[in-house]
Write a protein that binds this DNA or RNA. Structure first.
Lengths: 245, 245
DNA sequence: AACAATTATTTAAATGATAAATAAGAAACC
DNA sequence: GGTTTCTTATTTATCATTTAAATAATTGTT
């Protein structure tokens, strides 16, 4: 999926090992094969192995120490906001539960980003949001990709928040939207009235109405959450009370 | 500061190079010294260099390709939620501006986490929050470290949100609090009434009152933001006026 | 039983050699 | 002249081997 997968041997190996870890094929705290074993398992040299291990440890998935070997770190150490880690998790164990968590995070981030954008966005950033909205309109008429246009809209707002931490979440939000579409847009008809709602967000930001911008964004996301939660119930109902939680 | 700094040669080099990049000592898109040059500059072998480069590229700071060399990635690619990257940025260019952005993110995250905790927290997680609150009380009487107790409280709520993305932000929030204390607690008297406010958060979570939990948390953070913003103004104003006395 | 010393295993680091990728310049071509 | 294709030089990528350092497990001592 990612262009980095086949970029080179080290990246390939990083990807393969990362997937193995994320899939839970090695016990937490337990251990991966030793450096030497990985070399023979994957038929690669020591340096390729070491570099892959370093990359994974940089992403918080594993640690490696002499004599102890290579160990899986507890999940809360994994850097979930890393694009690779995120995509490995999504491709190895996609679930509505995960989408739900994703969207809860969006509920936290995006309305706040809109509020900040209303205060801080400069002329160029406003234009970018507007451009993205126009792409959504085009998409509605079959002239652009609806998903990409949608992503561009939400991304442009994050950028306009003028807060580097919010902007950093671009990839996260984009991924959330890409996953989301798999589930939700199958049910809900694509766009149409959605453009109007997004237009409303832009309007509130333009008019520097921070509070309304927050609300406008929150409204859309609350709908998304609701949609997911109904899905949630439908799918869990078929299983006899697995987990009350 | 981090125990990893002196962990071993590769980590040391990763740290040193990471700091250089974050400080802006190399132009974005421009380039770091070549592999060979880094080796001689830092007096390390190629394997150490390569592994450090891989770690930094895993964190999104740089890329390296044959013939092209090692290049600094644009800042929005940096993984700001990575503990190392965050600490490098903080130690190289700390600023109230950055603290402000930090706290804006907290405003987005924490109230939402409280709301989720009110819905999802189990008995053990509630107990953990309570324990942390008791530590804050102890701290108020000089029996515990106030900062660490505060961090424990906020962290325990993130965990109780039962959302792995929120929980992931533990380190981020902890770092934010640690930085925060440098600025804000110098002015504001330490704790006292704060314990009551935190108690209130716990109460709302315990009584499963999601909305009140949200508000209780938001209130504290809005105060923090306000405090930072007054600081912000004071410091920018005082540039031309050397000394008001 | 508690502690100290030894050993064996595994990663860490250095070195050297070859392969692959690619930016830049040279040559051929229209 | 301008475009394309080929060559070359540089740099990272990969492999192989050796030595060092760290440390878990074992053994020996008191």
């Amino acid at each position: 999926m990612n262009f980095r997968e086949k970029h080179n041997l080290t990246h390939q190996l990083t990807h393969d090992l990362g997937m193995e870890v994320v899939k839970g094929n090695y016990a937490v705290g337990g251990g991966l094969p030793s450096e030497a074993d990985i070399c023979s398992l994957y038929n690669v040299s020591r340096s390729a192995t070491r570099e892959a291990v370093k990359m994974l440890s940089a992403k918080g998935l594993i640690t490696s120490r002499p004599k102890q070997g290579i160990r899986v770190m507890p999940e809360h150490n994994w850097n979930l906001f890393d694009t690779d880690v995120l995509s490995w998790i999504l491709s190895s164990k996609p679930s509505i539960q995960l989408l739900h968590e994703f969207t809860q995070m969006r509920v936290a981030i995006e309305p706040q980003a809109c509020a900040l954008a209303a205060v801080h966005a400069n002329a160029e950033q406003l234009r970018n949001i507007e451009d993205a909205l126009n792409r959504m309109r085009d998409a509605d008429n079959g002239l652009d990709d609806p998903l990409e246009a949608d992503i561009a809209f939400h991304t442009s707002i994050l950028e306009a928040s003028c807060n580097r931490f919010f902007y950093q979440l671009t990839n996260f939000i984009a991924t959330a939207l890409r996953v989301s579409i798999r589930y939700t847009n199958k049910i809900k008809g694509v766009h149409g009235a959605d453009v109007l709602k997004h237009q409303h967000i832009l309007d509130t930001i333009k008019s520097r109405d921070s509070e309304s911008a927050y609300k406008a964004s929150k409204e859309i996301l609350d709908e998304a959450i609701e949609l997911i939660e109904t899905q949630f119930v439908e799918r869990t109902i078929s299983v006899p009370v697995v987990n009350a939680d």
